[in-house]
Computed example of a mutant assay.
Amino acid sequence: MSETLQTSLLRLSDWGVIRAQGADAAAFLHTQLTQDFALLDREHARLAGFCTAKGRLLATMVGWRGGDDEILLALPAETLAATLKRLSMFVMRAKCKLSDASQEFAVYGLLGAPTTEAWTLVRDGDAVQITLPGSGRALRVQPASSPAPAGAAMSSDDWAVAEAAAGMAWVRGATVEAFVPQMINFEVLGGVNFKKGCYPGQEIVARSQYRGTLKRRLQVFKTDGAAEIGQEIFNSADPEQPAGVVAGCGSRDGRTVIAAEIRLAALEGGSLHLGSAAGATLQHCPLPYDIPPQD
């Protein structure tokens, strides 16, 4: 792997890693997450969600094969402990041991990385580099004891802006159980396999997909106001009830980029505002990918 292409990087200290180890590790995760882990190869990663029985996302993560009989899951640290505890409740007789491996790994966000198909995985010794949606974005996960990869330092603001502009948001502490996967375009980004077997919430996720009832979607906005994840969004034509919620955001040069789950009808009239109908005005921006039309 050519490190000269890694133009800028940030250690994501707010991310952690769960290890699933054992002969049944992939099969167990296959029954719990929204993606297919049974057929996961060593050249790809999986975007996946962990849902409640009602189809609401408890966590979102990226998974890949590590060593023998090992799956590693990288996810925001604020949802890791609860995810690990809940997953462990369902292991039962499966030959799978779950543990928090965060201290063993360093997770980096990269901008300017080689652009390949999203979720492509390249191995570099003990490190892996996973292409994310959006031009030149990647996650790199390596042993914590390894030197930082080559590249210029990047600010957390730069990374957060790039995440939001890519139309991608991770479940954070403030948004646990706030979304079914389609509300944050998770299936469009490769996070849901509708052909796999059952997992918690599978019936509701599938029903939302095939009955054409998707009334809320992730959209990208810009604003001059400061935003925070979990903050509500209001429409001037209906100021009494929220029209959406901030799922991801970042600020740079006095402007904030927001990835927000929004009621689609709220885009058809009135203006959108942050925090209240009198808050900062949101400017709707095109998504960097297409949303398939509903049947």
Rank of each mutant, 00 (worst) to 15 (best):
A227V: 07
Q294R: 13
I233P: 04
V62R: 03
G22F: 02
A23D: 13
G275S: 07
L57E: 00
P181R: 07
C198M: 07
A148D: 14
A164R: 07
A178W: 01
V128C: 02
G112P: 10
Q219P: 00
A118I: 00
V246W: 02
G125C: 03
Q241R: 15
D14K: 14
A27T: 12
F186H: 12
Q21P: 01
L87V: 04
A166T: 10
M89E: 04
F186E: 08
P288H: 04
G225Y: 04
T60Q: 08
A277G: 13
L264A: 06
R11T: 13
Q209F: 03
D158Y: 00
L274P: 08
V205F: 05
R216Q: 10
L10V: 14
N235H: 01
D36C: 03
E43L: 04
V180L: 11
S13K: 13
L214F: 00
T60M: 04
A74C: 14
V220K: 12
A174R: 10
V245R: 14
L84D: 05
R216F: 03
V122D: 02
S99W: 03
T213G: 09
V62F: 01
A152H: 13
L218E: 06
A127F: 06
L214W: 00
I291A: 04
R211Q: 13
G112V: 13
K222L: 08
L75Y: 01
G112Q: 05
A162F: 01
E187C: 10
G275D: 04
R93E: 14
A81M: 05
L29Y: 00
L57R: 06
P239D: 14
D253E: 13
T83E: 01
R263I: 09
G66Y: 00
V245T: 13
A106R: 01
F179C: 09
Q32E: 05
Q241G: 02
Q142I: 07
T116P: 02
S145Y: 05
R252N: 02
A26F: 01
R216N: 11
A152L: 11
C96D: 03
R263N: 12
Q142S: 12
R255A: 15
A259D: 12
K85R: 15
F234R: 07
R93W: 06
G112S: 12
R140Y: 05
E228C: 05
A226L: 11
L274M: 05
E70T: 11
P149Y: 07
A247H: 01
R172G: 11
G151Q: 06
T115K: 10
G201R: 09
L264R: 11
V176E: 06
P147N: 10
K85I: 09
A278S: 14
G225E: 10
V17W: 00
A162M: 09
V176I: 15
S251R: 15
P286D: 14
A118K: 11
S2V: 03
F28H: 00
A144K: 07
G270T: 14
L132V: 03
A160D: 09
L87N: 04
I18V: 15
V176D: 03
A165E: 09
A127W: 06
E163F: 00
L218P: 02
V141G: 01
V17E: 03
G248V: 04
G279R: 09
W170T: 02
M168C: 07
P286I: 01
E187Q: 15
A178I: 04
D69N: 15
Q35Y: 02
A53E: 09
E163H: 04
A25W: 00
